[in-house]
Design a protein around this nucleic acid. Structure first.
Lengths: 224, 224
DNA sequence: GGGAATATTCCC
DNA sequence: GGGAATATTCCC
């Protein structure tokens, strides 16, 4: 990055990038993808990191600065003390984008009106996208968890069935078929890179083979 | 001072009053009359007092704030590290005046336009007055100093004259008259509350009595 | 999250 | 000394 570009970047933004990227910092960092910043423990962040970023002693003062530079809070499904903020021009691996970060201005103020409103629209759009994605992700995570419980329940029942013998089961061949296919589908979905393959379990044609009495008993442990 | 009045005073002004009035503070204080603030040692002021006054680490930042609240620098005849600032609404013995101190605004900005321009005119006027007074004072101080030297010279000569006897003096009665009146006029002017009585020495009719030969010798030590 | 007042910095 | 940009605080 050449000097004239570096000089265009507001001090706050430069310092923010420096601190977020510093692996020594425990309380502010990039998310896994280097797309969002993450504040991990507000109190400790304020005490340990904020003084290097700004003169304010208040967390709210820091957030005001983030907002002024167009960062938006990303809905997080974490319940712990973690906050994430996003700005489409603030990415770990593309520091050159930072030169597009401008102080937020009102529409009718002098300066790059048009430029700014475009930026603002983009940001609004991305914010909405992010919000939706974040919600979807949270739902999917819950779904994966429910599936795990289902699997465990299934495996437990199966184990019990095998230990007590097959005397109550009318068609042994059907049970064996189910054990080799049904759980495989369930477990296989967890190895998927998304942690989930939409609707695969329910719609899988293999499950139509399990129309025996034991499958009816399993309805109790299906959380879907 | 009631609470609603106290609340109208800008934080900076309140803190400034507190620090200037605190006798513990060595590097900022009132002048003798409680009319001006005095910063005594810039470096030490910045290190010891400024942190209690503001977040800025720079002396210039402090001065910017003074200017924003209408303080003006008073020409000082001191050559040492002392600066004085004046604001007609900032006085040691009349803290109630502080409520009139407003942040400096441009004429055409919304808010108390009229109010402000009046204030500004007053300040300009007072600044000029102060400037003139300060200059005059400095001149007078120099003049007093010259007079002192003159007096000392005179006394020295007189002492010499008396020790060597009165053989060279033609009219002894004239000399005695001068000794009892002339130095008294000179010294008397220093006890005056202004430290000076304009033109008294030169124009004093008593000096017309000293038209003897010794007075002609004294021309060498007159600094006027 | 952001408007607006105040504070601070930067620069002429 | 002060205009203007940026930072911080205060408050809705």
């Amino acid at each position: 990055m050449i000097d004239s570009e570096l000089n265009k970047i507001p001090k706050f933004v430069k310092r923010l990038f420096r601190e977020v990227s510093d692996p020594e910092n425990e309380y502010i960092c990039w998310d896994e993808d280097g797309e969002k910043i993450r504040i991990v423990n507000k109190d400790k962040f304020v005490k340990n990191t904020l003084p290097r970023l700004s003169k304010t002693k208040e967390y709210s003062g820091f957030i005001r600065q983030l907002n002024i530079y167009g960062f938006v809070k990303i809905k997080s499904d974490k319940n712990d003390d973690v906050e994430e903020y996003y700005n489409c021009f603030f990415k770990r691996d593309e520091p050159n984008l930072m030169e597009h970060i401008k102080r937020v201005r009102k529409y009718h103020e002098k300066g790059s009106k048009l430029n700014y409103s475009v930026l603002e629209n983009n940001l609004t759009y991305l914010t909405n996208c992010n919000f939706r994605l974040s919600n979807e992700l949270a739902e999917l995570r819950e779904r994966v968890e429910r599936q795990e419980r289902t699997i465990n329940g299934l495996l437990e029942i199966l184990g019990k069935v095998f230990r007590t013998g097959a005397q109550n089961i009318s068609h042994e061949s059907n049970l064996l078929k189910m054990r080799s296919d049904f759980p495989a589908n369930l477990l296989g979905s967890q190895n998927n890179s998304n942690g989930y393959t939409p609707g695969k379990l329910i719609e899988d044609k293999e499950s139509e083979h399990t129309n025996s009495s034991i499958v009816k008993d399993m309805n109790d442990i299906f959380y879907f």
